[in-house]
Design a binder for these strands. Structure first.
Length: 729
DNA sequence: AGCGGAATAC
DNA sequence: GTATTCCGCT
């Protein structure tokens, strides 16, 4: 399916189809929600508000009505609609903002951040608000993250959250897809159309699609990522192409968005990219991120990157900005630190968060004004983050349990650490911690435990929470390490390093992510912190987790396989793939993304890595030595892949875990595997699989040492390196 | 208000 | 696989 391979693009075939099949193809509620959110006409019924990605349903009944109209379910009501919304919790597409009525939040952070770390901000030109996650640009495309217009309430700074944009492609898709709509198959707008009736007719079709004109600013975005999903959507949202700055209010219905390509389903076609690049990526994910693989059908492959085709352009400044933004997001939104992992060396300034909430909510409308545009001003240095959020502060309120102190104190504190977080300044990014127990173990020890008491094991088994944290961190770390190759890696790396060097014979099994996921999820998806973290986490974890068999690590080749889950693969690549950096360079960019992207760019590499484009293609051989290219690819990578595959198997469980039950079979499998795995004690292996290393980021953060300068330098280096990679390899 | 199980529709 | 419908429980 996925396939884009065929096309060469990332987009799956289905993407091109308008219609779609049932199931997922039909318009999905979240798409619909986004659609409404992007339209000014509906601001009275639903609007962005609060944190990034957060929206409030001002008129539940109306929203339900609209939805019902769209789906031809006259009996629809908020209760039902909300049920549907709740199903998204597990998928991580959404979560409830606790304490706020009718307020939900999209999990964009992870999507963006994780998936598209590199973005060409420059192209965008505008500065990105911190909160807004950067968007990747496609080759030609630029995404604009920041929302152009906030629908409503954004504070000036905060715009970000509100994605004013639209996601044209999605919309289109929907439109087309909408066939099923009751309304008429035709309309593009169908979704809303109904709304038309109700609300405004004008919104007409065109509106829907809008894609983006680049309007103002920057954006043109047409690109997209994945058609199907949300990537696009998401991005667009942020980007707001239409006008980003544009503004909203003003534009009339007509104005709204114009879309260049009304027909095309995906707009994007676009991406003219460079070679296939065009595409980009698939994305990320929302699917991924959002959905764990299994959930969404469409799962796009996470592949990669946006960068594929595109250019990778990013300049240090941008990166900084991005990082900052990212940071901000993390802080504000409680993202997982993982995010930082990518840039281990970089130190990001911590955002300030205002404690106070944005009171703004109330004032929404007035505010909405144009803050969007301005956002940019600041820059990077420190953008203050004005965080959007006041809410950040308030969020917490809820639960004590969750309580993250994150607020004020370090941002990092997320719960992850739970209690432990040694700050460490060491150069290493990662902290060593004991790896979490394998699922099996855990289970074995106490199956019950998990649920019963998270606390129970505390350290050993690790309480759930803790465990997760660790696990993730570790795993991630490993990735990083591999990627970077350089010193960054610390602990975890050890294992990997071996791998890279030689190959690993070890099979590591990650500890299950599951836990972490579970934990998080279990705990509360809703919570911001946890959530996000989870999500990100998930991404990683999932990928890894799926391992099938462990088999052959030794070979290295094996890996290749791939195919397994396209998504996953991609993900893996994306995340993991670290190219081996030239030895000296890259310390910092090791991030998987980078590499992966780089790799992708390179044809040769590609083969190995699986491509981005499509997941479908598995790289055939990755044999180790085979190709010259190989050199480019680090053993580690291979190893990882392999590993990941192995994990996948397990992972699959994870997903399911998330929620609830896993099949026993899997469990068994896991157990077995675990048994093998145990070795990783260092965590490397293990951890890695799943999780990202918080640590790492912690460390980095913690270390003030790195200064911006340093960062810059690194960025430059990284850039340089990338170039190299591209060329060469 | 919100959650989530269960059955069911598509 | 998603969403709808119902419904009992907080």
């Amino acid at each position: 399916m996925k396939t884009p391979g065929e096309s060469g693009f990332a987009f799956p075939e289905w993407a091109y189809k308008p219609e779609s099949s049932p199931g997922s193809r039909q318009i999905q509620l979240w798409h619909f929600i986004l659609e409404l959110l992007r339209k000014e006409e509906y601001h009275d019924v639903i609007a962005w508000q609060g944190d990034y990605g957060e929206f409030v349903i001002k008129d539940p009944d109306e929203v339900a009505r609209l939805w019902g109209a769209r789906k031809c379910k006259p009996q629809m009501n908020y209760d039902k609609l909300s049920r549907a919304l709740r199903y998204y919790y597990n998928k991580r597409i959404l979560h409830k903002t606790k304490g706020k009525r009718f307020t939900y939040k999209f999990n964009f952070n992870k999507l963006v951040l994780v998936n598209y770390p590199f973005i060409d901000m420059s192209s965008t030109g505008s500065s990105v608000p911190q909160s807004a996650p950067p968007v990747p640009t496609g080759a030609g495309t630029h995404f604009r993250f920041p929302p152009s217009t906030p629908s409503e309430v954004l504070s000036p700074n905060e715009d970000l959250r509100s994605p004013g944009g639209m996601f044209s492609s999605v919309a289109r898709r929907m439109g087309r897809g909408s066939v099923s709509d009751c309304s008429d198959g035709t309309s593009v707008n169908s979704e809303i159309e109904e709304g038309n009736t109700g609300v405004g007719e004008e919104r007409g079709e065109r509106g829907v699609s809008g894609g983006g004109g680049p309007g103002g600013g920057g954006g043109g975005f047409r690109s997209i990522i994945h058609p199907r999903l949300s990537h696009e959507t998401l991005f667009r949202m942020y980007g707001g192409p239409g006008n980003p700055a544009g503004h909203p209010g003003s534009r009339g219905p007509t104005g709204h968005r114009i879309h260049p390509e009304p027909l095309s389903p995906f707009p994007v076609s676009p991406l003219p990219g460079p070679g296939g690049a065009g595409l980009l990526a698939p994305p990320l994910s929302p699917a991924l991120s959002m959905t764990p693989t299994s959930h969404l059908t469409y799962t796009p492959s996470p592949t990669l990157s946006p960068m594929l085709g595109s250019h990778f352009s990013f300049n240090p400044k941008d990166m900084e900005r991005y990082l900052q933004a990212h940071t901000q997001s993390v802080y504000n939104y409680g993202l997982s630190p993982r995010a930082f992992l990518q840039y281990p060396n970089i130190v990001i300034p911590q955002p300030h968060r205002p404690t106070a909430d944005k009171a703004g909510l109330a004032g929404e409308r007035g505010e909405r004004a144009e803050r969007a545009t301005t956002g940019g001003g600041e820059r990077g240095g420190e953008r203050h983050h004005h965080p959007p959020l006041g809410h950040s502060a308030h969020h917490h309120p809820h639960p004590p349990h969750t309580a993250h102190p994150h607020l004020h104190s370090h941002p990092m504190h997320h719960p992850l650490h739970l209690g432990e977080e040694p700050p460490h300044m060491s150069p290493f990014k990662f902290k060593l911690q004991p790896p979490p127990l394998g699922r099996k173990q855990r289970e074995g020890q106490s199956q019950t435990k998990l649920r019963q008491s998270s606390l129970s094991s505390g350290s050993g088994s690790g309480s759930m929470s803790s465990t997760s944290g660790l696990g993730s961190s570790l795993s991630f770390g490993s990735d990083l390490s591999s990627a970077s190759g350089s010193g960054l890696v610390s602990a975890s790396s050890s294992t990997q390093s071996l791998n890279s060097a030689g190959l690993p014979k070890i099979k590591v099994e990650p500890i299950s992510d599951i836990e972490s996921e579970e934990e998080v999820e279990v705990t509360d998806i809703s919570d911001e912190d946890p959530d996000e973290r989870d999500e990100e986490f998930e991404l990683f974890a999932r990928r890894h987790s799926r391992a099938p068999d462990h088999h052959h690590l030794a070979n290295g080749t094996a890996a290749s396989h791939h195919h397994p889950h396209p998504d996953e693969d991609l993900d893996e690549d994306v995340f993991k793939a670290p190219a081996p950096p030239p030895p000296g360079l890259m310390p910092f960019f090791t991030s998987q993304h980078t590499h992966s992207n780089a790799l992708r760019l390179l044809p040769t590499l590609k083969s190995e890595t699986t491509e981005p484009g499509d997941s479908s293609t598995p790289p055939p051989q990755t044999g180790s030595g085979e190709s010259p290219q190989t050199k480019c690819i680090p053993l580690k990578l291979r190893f990882k892949r392999r590993w990941s595959e192995d994990q996948r198997m397990e992972a699959s469980q994870e997903e399911s875990d998330d929620k609830k039950v896993r099949p026993e079979e899997e469990r068994d499998r896991e157990r077995q595997s675990n048994g093998q795995m145990e070795m990783d004690e260092d965590g490397t292996g293990s951890g890695e699989a799943d999780s990202p290393p918080l640590l790492a980021y912690e460390g980095s953060l913690a270390t003030p040492l790195a200064s911006h300068q340093r960062v810059s330098a690194e960025l430059h280096r990284a850039t340089a390196q990338l170039s190299l990679e591209n060329k060469d390899c």
